[in-house]
């Protein structure tokens, strides 16, 4: 984040926020990465509802679950809870 910071004449009054949090990726916090096995996944839709970071989405076009690695912090809740055991957590650096 090296962008020039605004001066007092430029920022909105009263500390009103002017950037959406979605401009602030949190994916680089991650140590472990969830990987889903699409063969095992039953698309039960539990994981999107228990993800703290809205990092598991339902893609309407593909009719499938997808991870948003820009925001996934790698907590592992999805893997822990998946009834089909379709998600495993892998260490980030283990990836090629």
């Amino acid at each position: 984040m090296t962008e020039k910071q605004k001066g007092w004449k430029e920022v909105p009054v009263a500390g009103v926020c002017w950037k959406p949090a979605t401009d602030y990726p949190t994916g680089d916090w991650r140590t472990f990465k969830p990987i889903r096995d699409p063969e095992k996944c039953t698309k039960c839709l539990l994981c999107p509802m228990i993800c703290p970071d809205s990092a598991i989405e339902w893609n309407r076009n593909t009719e499938d679950i997808q991870f948003d690695y820009d925001f996934c912090k790698g907590c592992g809740i999805c893997a822990n809870e998946c009834p089909a055991e379709a998600i495993i957590m892998t260490r980030e650096e283990e990836e090629a």
Partner: peptide, 21 residues
């Protein structure tokens, strides 16, 4: 469940809660 997951989040990603919050 599908209706709910398709409903856009009003509390979005990019918040700085700890992992697993």
């Amino acid at each position: 469940a599908k209706e709910i997951v398709e409903k856009p989040d009003l509390f979005t990603s990019g918040h700085r809660a700890c992992a697993g919050c």
